[in-house]
């Protein structure tokens, strides 16, 4: 029997439907469902507002008040509880009516427990990153890597990769790894590319950043 050209066309069309069904299904899985499955959300112990504390605010703290270098050159990335207590000393006289401030007292200051902040830019244990070499010596701005944190009213949602246990911000919030700003991604290649761009390719020797 001769194949019916109409049938054949229909069959071909059907074939494309199946093909696209597969394609679209896979795209949905790959672009939407997979990221949802890969990351779990965790909330920060407190919703800290940089804006409320920062230089522009009524509190008017300089960035260096909390993010400073110790004398041995190590960096106080996130200050300890002691720093908070310097101002938040009396549970009876709160600065705001924010429930977060109450939480700060009841959960941490009273039991003298360090606040278990979730760090967006925490690198793997095998990485050594000296802030002082980048910030002081190479005069890199904080936002080059960290983005505009200082203008945050609320802390971004912390997402952790279920497989690697790293923060989403290492790979970047874009699942494709697309990077628009310098601070969108913090993978090894980004470090290396920047070193190269700055003419410091010798700093791409393995031991410089690995410990």
């Amino acid at each position: 029997m001769e194949p019916d050209p109409k049938q054949e066309r229909k069959g071909k069309r059907d074939g494309w439907i199946f093909f696209f069904a597969g394609l679209i299904g896979a795209l949905i899985v790959g672009w939407i469902i997979f990221p949802l499955l890969l990351y779990s959300e965790r909330s920060q112990p407190l919703n800290f507002s940089h804006v409320k504390h920062g230089p522009e605010s009524s509190v008017g703290l300089d960035c260096e008040e909390c993010h400073f270098f110790y004398e041995d050159g190590t960096f106080s990335g996130i200050p300890g509880l002691k720093k908070c207590i310097e101002c938040h000393e009396d549970p009876e006289s709160l600065y705001t009516d924010s429930p977060e401030e109450v939480k700060l007292f009841t959960n941490f200051i009273e039991p003298l427990k360090e606040i278990p902040w979730l760090v967006y830019s925490r690198q793997p244990d095998c990485v050594y990153f000296p802030h002082i070499a980048h910030v002081k010596m190479a005069e890199t701005e904080c936002r080059v890597c960290h983005g505009d944190f200082a203008t945050n009213h609320t802390l971004p949602v912390f997402k952790v990769n279920r497989l690697t246990k790293y923060s989403i911000d290492i790979w970047g919030r874009n699942i494709a790894g697309y990077r628009k700003n310098t601070w969108d991604r913090m993978k090894m290649n980004d470090c290396a590319a920047c070193h190269k761009q700055q003419g410091k390719e010798h700093n791409n020797a393995c031991l410089v950043c690995h410990k």
């Binding site: 093909f19 069904a21 597969g22 299904g25 896979a26 795209l27 790959g30 997979f34």
Partner: peptide
Amino acid sequence: KFFAGGIGGTLVSP
């Protein structure tokens, strides 16, 4: 064909 589309789609997904 469905499978091929799926593979194709997966490959262009992250």
